[in-house]
Computed example of a mutant assay.
Amino acid sequence: MTVQDQTVPTVQTDGVILTDEAATKVKALLDGEGRDDLSLRIAVQPGGCSGLRYQLFFDERNLDGDIVKEYSGVHVVTDRMSAPYLMGATIDFVDTIEKQGFTIDNPNATGSCACGDSFH
């Protein structure tokens, strides 16, 4: 393989990024529910020990101002109020002996609590 054959990943700052692993897991969960009308919604709400808390859930609604991106057939939706807090955030899914679940790597978070559920 030559240097020209390698692709350099680009940094996206125009919304939430869903990894292939996370997209596969979301698709499996949706298939298990037998629903193809749901999107993965990520929102930021006040709460938690650091001030803001992530919410990930399946949603059938389309709200005015929603930002929608598609990854491998999975629609990821962010409401317009949460979008500035989530620009460039990456949602991944890990399944190891130590940890299982969705993770969020958010470049906009200046700090988080020890439990990792909230940020500021």
Rank of each mutant, 00 (worst) to 15 (best):
I91A: 05
V11P: 00
G73N: 04
F57A: 11
T78M: 08
D14N: 08
K99M: 13
I104R: 05
E60R: 14
V44Y: 08
A28P: 02
V76N: 04
P107I: 01
I67W: 02
K69T: 13
A109V: 09
C49Q: 13
F119M: 02
T7P: 00
A89N: 05
A109K: 02
T13L: 06
K27G: 04
F58S: 09
M81F: 08
S112D: 09
S112Y: 03
Q12Y: 02
A28K: 13
I104D: 03
I17R: 15
D59G: 10
A83N: 09
H75T: 06
L29A: 11
A22P: 01
L63F: 13
G34V: 12
I91W: 03
T7A: 02
H75Q: 15
A43L: 07
S50T: 12
F58I: 02
G73I: 12
D37G: 13
N106W: 02
V76W: 01
G32L: 08
K25N: 10
T7N: 01
M87D: 06
Y71T: 15
D95H: 13
Q6K: 10
I91K: 05
K69R: 15
S39K: 15
R35L: 08
Q12C: 01
V11H: 00
S82V: 01
L63A: 15
G15Y: 07
E70L: 02
T19P: 07
G65D: 09
L56H: 10
H75E: 11
P9K: 02
S72Y: 12
G48L: 12
D105L: 03
P46F: 02
D59P: 07
D105P: 00
D66G: 03
F57E: 12
L86E: 07
D66P: 04
L52K: 11
C49G: 13
E21V: 01
P84S: 09
D92F: 04
D117P: 00
F57W: 08
H120N: 10
G73Y: 08
E98A: 15
L40Q: 09
H120F: 12
L29F: 03
T110Q: 11
